[in-house]
């Protein structure tokens, strides 16, 4: 069932344990200004129960990747999706809509960024919670309500039984995000896509939600892909990190070594441009010069070359492929060996 071209998959996860495998996923949007290459030949694996962080700036294609996995890009008329998304032996891109609908919300579920706009304001929490349980698991309404109350308690909503008849506007932002997590977990999904799950929340609430996600994924044995622009959010939570830039994965690997010594200049730039609480204050911050490229008019070579401190003629001519560097790590940079050996630190 597995597609034949799995060699350049951005993961070294244990065989047989693979839950999700993306192979050369490409998403293009037709626009007046030409074709926008939102996601460009993205390949990676997610193992069962694994916590993966997908990191990048706005417009790098991280949300489009998530939407493609859950089958939302298929509904966009100007989107062209190619490649393969293999989920437990089924290619989600070729699956007919009824079968996809059976997977969506049950085996794969999603938490959206904005808890204020992603819960339907005219439906009660009871309706929002029980819908999935009744449709996917075939529970009776009474059982679904009972299960919903348990789930709401599990995500930390006090007096859940009294609040199940309430509407979303009667909850605070953090509480709404908890409701969304409860809905997402209600059918015991194998994969949870969390698209900027804490961006709309305050730091103290963010800490609560991240802890909750981590412990719930352990209890429910669900794999989680956390999509974020905040490197700090994934540092404490995820085992493996994928860094995206201009529609491509530019670096991937286990969190600790990746943060300690990145093998791609963009990752280096991202890490250096944010001040950290655990380091002495610097006079000025290091910046990544320039702007992210226009996805409709990508440069012929490496998309990061115009902003890169290491760029050479080679980088302007052709784009580097994602290739292995160290154990479980990959980098899409012609200078990966230099970065791996730490020869570039003086320049950076």
């Amino acid at each position: 069932m597995l597609p034949g071209v799995a060699i350049d998959s951005a993961s070294m996860s244990v065989d047989g344990n693979t839950l999700l495998r993306l192979t050369e996923l490409t998403v293009d949007f037709a626009s007046q200004e030409g074709t926008v290459h939102a996601v460009n030949r993205v390949s990676f694996d997610v193992a069962a129960g694994e916590l993966v962080g997908l990191v990048g700036e706005s417009g790098c294609g991280k949300s489009v990747t998530a939407n493609a996995i859950i089958g939302l890009t298929g509904m966009v008329p100007n989107a062209a999706v190619s490649g393969a998304i293999d989920f437990l032996g089924k290619d989600l891109l070729t699956l007919p809509e009824p079968e996809l609908r059976a997977i969506r919300g049950r085996d794969i579920s999603m938490i959206f960024q904005d808890p204020v706009t992603s819960l339907n304001p005219v439906l009660s929490i009871e309706r929002l919670m029980t819908e999935g349980l009744e449709v996917h698991l075939g529970l009776s309404h009474g059982d679904a309500v009972k299960r919903s109350i348990e789930l709401l308690g599990e995500v930390g909503i006090p007096k859940a039984a009294n609040r199940i008849k309430d509407y979303p506007h009667q909850f605070s932002g953090g509480m709404r995000q908890r409701v969304m997590i409860a809905i997402a977990l209600s059918c015991n999904p194998k994969l949870l896509l969390a698209d900027e799950p804490t961006t709309a929340l305050d730091v103290t609430i963010q800490a609560q939600i991240l802890r909750l996600l981590k412990s719930l994924s352990r209890e429910h044995e669900a794999a989680v892909i956390v999509i974020t622009h905040d490197l700090g959010v994934v540092a404490g939570m995820c085992q493996r990190i994928l860094v995206m830039y201009a529609g491509r994965i530019v670096e991937s690997g286990p969190a600790k070594p990746l943060f300690a010594r990145p093998h791609h200049p963009y990752t280096i730039g991202l890490l250096k441009s944010v001040p950290r609480l655990n380091e002495p204050r610097a006079d000025s911050l290091q910046t990544i010069m320039g702007l992210p490229p226009d996805l409709a008019h990508l440069p012929p070579g490496c998309a990061f070359a115009p902003r890169c401190f290491l760029a050479t003629d080679e980088c302007w001519a052709a784009g580097p492929e994602l290739e292995p560097t160290d154990e479980g790590r990959m980098s899409a940079c012609f200078h990966r060996d230099q970065l791996r050996a730490g020869e570039t630190e003086a320049v950076a």
Partner: peptide, 9 residues
């Protein structure tokens, strides 16, 4: 509660 972009820390 401020996340630090450093898994070791």
């Amino acid at each position: 509660a401020v996340p630090i972009p450093d898994p070791a820390a």
